[in-house]
């Protein structure tokens, strides 16, 4: 079965694989950051009292949740050229993953906001804390706790989405795997390794999020 799985492959191409994984992480981090920015903006828009803003926010969320990521990756990289806008492949990927993730994050924030009891706001107001201060010091921390698991899942989802950037030749892990596969024809080996690396990254992140959740939010729950 040496023709099927070649462990030596891993070693020979190690620098390419590591570089690919590093790019994946970098792309993932940038996309996650972008998705939080878009998500916050989307939530604020949708929650606005102005009807035009609320509609725009709602349209953003529904449009992005019901269309595929790949559409935006192509659209931003190839499509916008036709109207005179050029983005690099990396930027296109970050923006595409950012707006996609943002739509889900906007909804997560919305859910967390309604989950925070209104009486908390009332108490803050009674103490003389104006709305912005109440939001910053009382509501957001509680929203973060409620939203944390869902946000963690969304971060992982965005990280997995970075694989799509390979189609516009961003040199992340899956792209490098394709290159290696094309030159060695050891597709089974190379995509196995590819999959395992993602698996390890995701599992590590999941454990990390559980740990943070336990350490940061644990004491709040008290002894009950």
């Amino acid at each position: 079965m040496t023709s099927l799985f070649d462990p030596g492959l891993f070693w020979r191409y190690r620098s390419v694989i590591v570089a690919g994984a590093a790019t994946t992480l970098l792309l993932g981090a940038c996309s996650v950051a972008a998705s939080f920015v878009f998500g916050l903006a989307g939530w604020l828009l949708k929650a606005s009292k102005l009807r035009a803003c609320a509609w725009a926010g709602g349209a953003y969320v529904e449009a992005l949740r019901n269309t595929p990521d790949l559409l935006y990756i192509y659209g931003l990289y190839f499509g916008l050229v036709t109207v005179g806008v050029t983005f690099s492949a990396f930027t296109s990927a970050v923006l595409a993953l950012g707006i996609q993730g943002g739509a889900y994050i906007a909804e997560i924030i919305r859910g967390a906001f309604t989950a925070v009891s209104n009486e908390q706001r009332v108490a803050a107001r009674a103490l003389g804390l104006k709305p912005w201060k109440s939001l910053a010091y009382v509501e957001l921390p509680q929203m973060l706790r409620v939203a944390f698991p869902a946000l963690g899942n969304q971060v992982i989802s965005t990280l997995l989405g970075t694989a799509l950037a390979s189609v516009i030749a961003v040199p992340e892990l899956t792209y490098q795997s394709q290159i290696i596969g094309d030159s060695t024809y050891q597709y089974f080996s190379v995509f196995s390794v590819d999959a395992v690396i993602y698996l390890v990254l995701v599992q590590a992140l999941t454990r990390l999020f559980h740990l943070i959740d336990h350490l940061w939010f644990g004491p709040w729950r008290g002894t009950v």
Binding site: E119, Q120, A123, A126, L127, Q142, W220
Partner: peptide, 12 residues
């Protein structure tokens, strides 16, 4: 100052 029936302390 106001005191509520369900305390409304900030849990975090």
């Amino acid at each position: 100052g106001m005191i509520f029936q369900h305390f409304n302390l900030f849990p975090h």
